[in-house]
């Protein structure tokens, strides 16, 4: 355990996202706009994990997200663990949960959907009894959550 703690430095205040499957790391980085952050960000990539084989971890100093922002992550990986750190202590630990509605996050797979042809936000509703699909608010296309593509962020 000691060795692992040394691999990624502790932070005084901020947010830690753990148990990111390594192949999803860069999708998470893009979704949270980490490229635009000015405070310290530590990213651990391809760390050993008993559960996942390879996992990744992100530590963001002095950064706190709204629940809405963090829950968007559930679109890419449903089982992330979040830790809110204050004064080196974990003050809150929880799993992300998929929100009922997603705005501006997911790309609609239907090329004839208005959202792919007009400068506007996409809008999806979680669909199905097991909540494993999304339904486009505009064209009603249903997309399997496994096959979702995220909106490419501009600027």
């Amino acid at each position: 355990m000691k060795e692992k703690q040394l691999m990624v430095a502790a932070i005084e205040n901020g947010t830690v996202i753990d148990h990111i499957p390594s192949e999803k790391l860069f999708a998470v980085v893009n979704l949270l706009h980490l490229d635009r952050m000015t405070s310290a960000v530590t990213i651990g990539y391809n760390l050993e994990s008993q559960e996942l084989g390879k996992k990744s971890i992100i530590k963001m100093a002095d950064k706190f997200f709204t629940n809405e922002e963090l829950n968007q992550l559930a679109v890419i990986c449903p089982n992330l663990t979040l830790c809110i750190i204050r004064d080196y202590e974990i003050v809150e630990k929880r799993m992300v949960t998929l929100p009922d509605e997603l705005k501006g996050i997911v790309h609609c797979a239907n090329p004839k959907c208005i959202t792919n042809n007009e400068p506007m936000q996409t809008h999806f509703h979680v669909h199905g009894p097991d909540r494993r699909a999304l339904k486009c608010h505009y064209c009603n296309t249903i997309i399997d959550l496994e096959k979702v593509k995220l909106v490419e962020k501009k600027g």
Binding site: N110, K112, C113, I114, C139
Partner: peptide
């Protein structure tokens, strides 16, 4: 009437 799906909702 529009050729794009979801145009009326928008």
């Amino acid at each position: 009437r529009h050729y794009l799906e979801g145009a009326a909702r928008y």
